[in-house]
Write a protein that binds this DNA or RNA. Sequence first.
DNA 1: AGTAATTATTTAGCTAGGTAAATAAATTTC
DNA 2: GAAATTTATTTACCTAGCTAAATAATTACT
Lengths: 133, 133
Amino acid sequence: MMNPIFHALFQKSRYLTNCLNEVLKQHQLYSSQWTILYCLHKNGPMTLTQIWKYLNVEAPSITRAITRLETLGWVQRLDGEDKREKIVTLSAQAEERLPAITATIIAFEEEMVGSLTVEEQHQFIKLLEKMKG
Amino acid sequence: MMNPIFHALFQKSRYLTNCLNEVLKQHQLYSSQWTILYCLHKNGPMTLTQIWKYLNVEAPSITRAITRLETLGWVQRLDGEDKREKIVTLSAQAEERLPAITATIIAFEEEMVGSLTVEEQHQFIKLLEKMKG
DNA sequence: AGTAATTATTTAGCTAGGTAAATAAATTTC
DNA sequence: GAAATTTATTTACCTAGCTAAATAATTACT
């Protein structure tokens, strides 16, 4: 890329994802799986559509991730009143393990972003949002 | 993620990649293919190892991408003096088409990043680099 | 009420990243 | 100089995004 912003941004994004996956290995989770678990923890049971709209991802990515999380015992898929929709809920196992995982994540984020002051963190987000899109 | 920086960063990264792919459709290229072509244009012929080290990705990603670029006629793989290594060069077709693609990219980048002042762009990169890693 | 349009989810198949392990050539070591 | 180590590339297989199209259930239309 000619403008160094893009290369820097893409690279940091990949780097952070890899680090996050590394750190989450101890809980046998991938970063995107964690993202979904956290989303459910924060919002309670959600339909697939609610999840992908919330996370700003396309539906098939969520279908696949939920299928995996289900077979691994982290979530359940229940039929909704509207028979088209599936409602996803955290399993007891997930609820039980979530605090430890959350602690891992908080430590990770603190390590990664701790070199920035709170001021700089706000500045960073502001700049991200000021970019088109 | 609990710290909004990560979500914002990952999301913008995904968004920009998608936009870039969209814009590159007119040249029948994907963003990561473009990245490699530009890398070769800037540095001249390179071995696979030089490419993946330069782009900061793992070797298999580059092997795959180069194979595809080769079958599409954008690059050639030549044996090096060291018989282990393959030297990748741009094809005549690529050299010919690169100016038009570059123009597309410059316009894209200007559109995406134009809402930031030059000052802010520097600030942004500085903050990215200040984050750990 | 019956047909058409919309909505939720899934399936199939693509790019693009990653790790682990295989292979082949070059280099180092003894 | 033979054996061991290193290096460059590839292969196989995983996650994770995407689009396009299929399916099934609901809603809207007339």
